[in-house]
Design a protein around this nucleic acid. Sequence first.
DNA 1: CTTGGTGCAAACATTTTGCAGCACA
DNA 2: TGTGCTGCAAAATGTTTGCACCAAG
Lengths: 161, 161
Amino acid sequence: MAELRPNSIPTDDDPPIDIADPLCAVFRRKLKAEGAKYTPERAQILDAIIRLDGMFEAETLQEHLKDRGQRVSKATVYRTIKLLQEAGIIQRVLFEDEQAHYQLVYGRRPSDLLIRVDTGEVIPIQVPELQQIRDRLAKEHGLKIQSHRLQVFAVGEGTKG
Amino acid sequence: MAELRPNSIPTDDDPPIDIADPLCAVFRRKLKAEGAKYTPERAQILDAIIRLDGMFEAETLQEHLKDRGQRVSKATVYRTIKLLQEAGIIQRVLFEDEQAHYQLVYGRRPSDLLIRVDTGEVIPIQVPELQQIRDRLAKEHGLKIQSHRLQVFAVGEGTKG
DNA sequence: CTTGGTGCAAACATTTTGCAGCACA
DNA sequence: TGTGCTGCAAAATGTTTGCACCAAG
């Protein structure tokens, strides 16, 4: 049976976050909490993600590291991505692609996405209405909403599909 | 560069659809239109999808076929899935899983999803508010919205994440 | 020092593709 | 009766894992 459960979708109502708190400290705390180590590779990866800021894939990330002369192995990239997901710092954001896309989410309201299918551009958007939609769904279904994901696909005005 | 563009997200404002029109006829028409053939394998695959009705993966699909004594190769399953996507009959719906999930969408308003992360259950939902959200986004960004995808993740009331 | 981390390469899982023979239109 | 389709097996991706050596705490 396929595993339908998201790896670790951060619950929106997790403890409120101090935005000013450097992500690296957050990561360190998480690592220490489970007896793991804060290595240069992990620091470099988190750093690269902060620099990339928007969306990234494992490969992109590794290339950016390489461009800075920081050689980190594929294995370590993937392993660290997993840790950062567990820490709620990044989140997987899949498109219709076979490659996993990630997004920095810690300390930000997880943004919904407007995706231009003609250019590939990804525009973060805010959709306040979703809060009431979530509330309604929770009530209607007797469930506790943890998070959501909205992707809106669009093309430029003049573009012909 | 990664391909960000969805393979073929059916545009919501495609020509209106006669729900009564058997999917198989739709598929046939599409195949004929491009000089392709309507083979038993393709018929069996579409049939299995209609029987499955909800969500499915390539593997599930092949197993269902096998259970009915219809041996279709992996290659043909994938090739046909691609054709059905192009025909707007099914749509890819990815979760946080590495395996692609598909959904029958032809002749239905593509539904948004409520996903129970504790049980893996997937509940189709209707969110009428999205229409005005889409309209607003279109105006704000000067884009033409083609489609969207909303996934809401929830757990049962008593469940502790 | 001890435990956990890294890189490498091999293993994996899913999807795609090349090719020879088969079958629909 | 020709073009497109199928199955098979091999290739291509993207991600994970085993292992020997190395380094953080």
